[in-house]
Lab assay of single mutants.
Amino acid sequence: NKFNKELQWATWEILNLPNLNEEQVKAFIDSLKDDPSQSANLLAEAKKLNDAQA
C-alpha cells in the first residue's frame, strides 16, 4: 500500500543521512513506525536537522 512504500522510502532516506547521530535516527524511525502517515513530514524534519548539523 501507499503508506508502506512511503514508510520504506523515508526509513531508507533517514538511515542514510550522514549528520544524524544514532539516537536521532532511532527517534525518527520510531516516530515513523508510530505514525506512517507522517512519513513525508518526518523525512523533511530529519533532512532539516541533518542540514543544520552539517
Rank of each mutant, 00 (worst) to 15 (best):
N1T: 04
N1Q: 05
N1H: 04
N1Y: 00
N1F: 01
N1R: 04
N1M: 01
N1S: 04
K2W: 14
K2A: 15
K2R: 11
K2Y: 07
F3W: 04
F3H: 15
F3Y: 10
F3T: 15
F3K: 15
F3R: 15
N4I: 14
N4S: 06
N4E: 15
N4V: 09
N4M: 09
N4T: 14
K5R: 04
K5Q: 14
K5P: 15
K5M: 02
K5F: 03
K5I: 04
K5N: 15
E6V: 07
E6F: 14
E6H: 08
E6A: 06
L7S: 03
L7I: 13
Q8E: 15
Q8A: 13
Q8V: 06
Q8P: 02
Q8G: 04
Q8R: 07
Q8I: 14
W9M: 11
W9H: 13
W9L: 15
W9F: 13
W9E: 15
W9Y: 14
A10S: 03
A10Y: 07
A10L: 10
A10Q: 03
A10D: 02
A10R: 03
A10F: 15
A10M: 08
T11I: 11
T11N: 04
T11P: 02
T11A: 05
T11F: 11
T11S: 06
T11G: 03
T11Q: 05
W12Y: 10
W12D: 15
W12M: 14
W12N: 15
W12I: 14
W12H: 13
W12E: 15
W12S: 14
E13T: 09
E13V: 12
E13A: 08
E13D: 03
E13G: 04
E13R: 05
I14W: 01
I14H: 01
I14S: 01
I14M: 04
I14T: 01
I14R: 00
I14V: 04
L15G: 05
L15H: 09
L15N: 10
L15R: 06
L15Q: 13
N16H: 13
N16P: 00
N16R: 07
N16W: 04
N16T: 08
L17R: 00
L17Q: 03
L17N: 01
L17K: 01
L17A: 02
L17H: 02
P18G: 07
P18Q: 09
P18M: 09
P18H: 09
P18Y: 06
P18D: 05
P18S: 09
P18A: 11
N19P: 00
N19W: 12
N19S: 07
N19K: 03
N19Y: 13
N19Q: 06
N19R: 03
L20H: 00
L20Q: 00
N21D: 09
N21L: 11
N21A: 08
N21E: 08
N21M: 09
N21R: 12
N21K: 09
E22F: 11
E22R: 09
E22K: 13
E22G: 07
E22D: 14
E22Y: 12
E22L: 09
E22W: 13
E22T: 12
E23A: 14
E23L: 13
E23Q: 13
E23H: 08
E23T: 05
E23S: 10
E23V: 13
Q24R: 01
Q24N: 02
Q24H: 03
Q24Y: 02
Q24P: 00
Q24V: 05
Q24F: 02
V25A: 11
V25T: 09
V25M: 15
V25E: 02
V25F: 03
V25Y: 05
V25D: 00
V25N: 01
V25L: 05
K26I: 12
K26R: 12
K26H: 10
K26N: 12
A27E: 10
A27H: 12
A27V: 11
A27Q: 09
F28M: 04
F28W: 03
F28N: 00
F28H: 01
F28K: 01
F28E: 00
I29L: 12
I29T: 04
I29P: 00
I29H: 03
I29K: 02
I29W: 03
I29A: 03
D30F: 06
D30P: 00
D30V: 08
D30W: 08
D30H: 08
S31K: 12
S31D: 07
S31Q: 13
S31T: 10
L32S: 01
L32G: 01
L32D: 00
L32E: 00
K33S: 10
K33R: 10
K33Q: 13
K33D: 05
K33M: 15
K33I: 15
K33L: 15
K33V: 12
K33N: 15
D34G: 10
D34F: 09
D34T: 11
D35T: 09
D35H: 08
D35P: 01
D35K: 08
D35I: 05
P36E: 03
P36Q: 03
S37E: 12
S37W: 09
S37Q: 08
S37G: 11
S37I: 05
S37P: 03
Q38Y: 05
Q38M: 08
Q38P: 01
Q38I: 06
Q38L: 09
Q38E: 07
Q38A: 10
Q38G: 07
S39W: 15
S39H: 14
S39I: 15
S39K: 06
S39N: 08
S39Y: 15
A40I: 10
A40E: 08
A40K: 14
A40T: 09
A40W: 09
A40Q: 11
N41F: 12
N41T: 13
N41I: 12
N41K: 13
N41E: 09
N41V: 09
L42F: 06
L42G: 01
L42W: 05
L42D: 00
L42N: 02
L42T: 12
L42K: 06
L43R: 04
L43K: 03
L43Y: 07
L43H: 03
L43P: 01
A44Y: 14
A44Q: 06
A44W: 09
A44M: 11
A44S: 08
E45S: 07
E45Q: 14
E45D: 10
E45Y: 08
E45I: 06
E45R: 06
E45F: 05
A46S: 02
A46V: 02
A46L: 02
A46N: 00
A46Q: 00
A46M: 02
K47T: 07
K47Y: 12
K47N: 06
K47S: 06
K47A: 05
K47D: 02
K48D: 06
K48Y: 07
K48M: 13
K48R: 12
L49K: 04
L49W: 04
L49A: 05
L49D: 02
L49H: 03
N50T: 01
N50W: 01
N50E: 01
N50I: 01
N50M: 01
D51H: 09
D51V: 09
D51L: 08
D51Q: 09
D51S: 07
D51R: 10
D51T: 08
D51F: 11
A52V: 09
A52K: 12
A52F: 09
A52P: 02
A52L: 14
A52I: 12
A52D: 11
A52W: 10
Q53V: 06
Q53I: 07
Q53D: 02
Q53K: 06
Q53G: 06
Q53S: 05
A54W: 07
A54E: 10
A54S: 12
A54D: 13
A54T: 10
A54N: 10
A54I: 09
